[in-house]
């Protein structure tokens, strides 16, 4: 059960242990020093992204391989639909950042569904927090670089706001753009991953637990061998849903980063 839930107890006595706290689902065992398994997965996600891109673009092929085509379509999607599509012609410059963001988040998310890993690295606040901070720094920096101090004025008082409303709008915009924006960006990804991981652990774990307790005679046969598999089936349905959620969240994070950068570049709207 270590495989599914990514946490363990004594497998000789029980197939899985009920965690004392929800936190235990997200705190992976320490390997050595202050290095835990999460950190290994974080580095592994980076290496997987690098390897995938390396094998796709190793040599300039006129006719790509199947794998190359799959990676290329992702790269093209980020470049054309997000970087160029949202930011416009100047978006090429931000392409590498957005592509890194998308690929890293996507691979990290899918670690949650990968057998033997089963842990989305974005469910640790360090990852979405750091990435949201980078996006924040970029869009604020780009705003000041492009527009100077006018960026602050344009952002806090969008054109057409009556003078009387300016203090109110200014406070709202200040809070929403410079405080809530990075936080919401980080929490959106983080919360989705935490919720998904918890759901999967609970449903699949319940399935195993019901069957196991029934096999030990602790609960009735009916409960154990009928309800248990149902939990498991429900868990598998959520598993499929998670595929969608994980992809969507990687996309949303990248898209919003692009939208924020664009709003700093073009203050008119």
């Amino acid at each position: 059960m270590d495989v599914i839930l990514a946490f363990s107890c004594n497998p000789q006595e029980q197939p899985l242990c009920i965690p004392d706290s929800i936190l235990e689902l997200f705190e992976l065992p320490v390997l050595f020093g202050s290095v835990n398994r999460t950190m290994v997965y974080i580095i592994l996600a980076a290496l997987v992204v690098v390897a995938a891109l390396y094998f796709a673009y190793r040599k300039p092929r006129v006719v790509p391989t199947k794998f190359g085509l799959a990676v290329e379509s992702m790269v093209d999607f980020v470049r054309n639909d997000i970087a160029l599509g949202v930011i416009g012609p100047g978006g090429e410059k931000y392409g590498p950042y957005l592509l890194s963001l998308f690929m890293f988040i996507l691979v990290g998310n899918f670690f949650g569904l990968t057998p033997f890993i089963n842990f989305p690295i974005g469910s640790r606040m360090a990852i979405p927090g750091f990435l949201a901070l980078v996006t924040y720094v970029i869009f604020v920096f780009v705003g000041f670089k492009k527009q100077g101090l006018a960026y602050l004025g344009e952002t806090l008082w969008p054109p057409g706001v009556p003078v009387a409303l300016r203090p109110l709008i200014g406070v709202i915009e200040l809070v929403s753009i410079f405080i809530v924006r990075p936080f919401s960006l980080a929490v959106r990804l983080f919360a989705n991953l935490v919720a998904g991981h918890t759901m999967l652990a609970l449903l699949l774990g319940s399935g195993v637990y019901f069957v196991w307790t029934a096999a030990n005679g602790d609960i009735s046969f009916l409960k154990g061998f009928v309800v248990g598999p149902l939990w498991f089936v429900f868990g598998m349905a959520i598993f499929l849903l998670e595929i969608l959620v994980l992809t969507l969240q990687a996309y949303i994070f990248t898209l919003l980063s692009a939208v924020y950068i664009e709003s700093s570049l073009n203050p008119a709207h």
Binding site: S34, N36, T38, I42, I43, S100, F104
Partner: peptide, 11 residues
Amino acid sequence: WPELVAGIIAF
């Protein structure tokens, strides 16, 4: 903190 450092290095 250790995970943040790993995340920074990885990204």
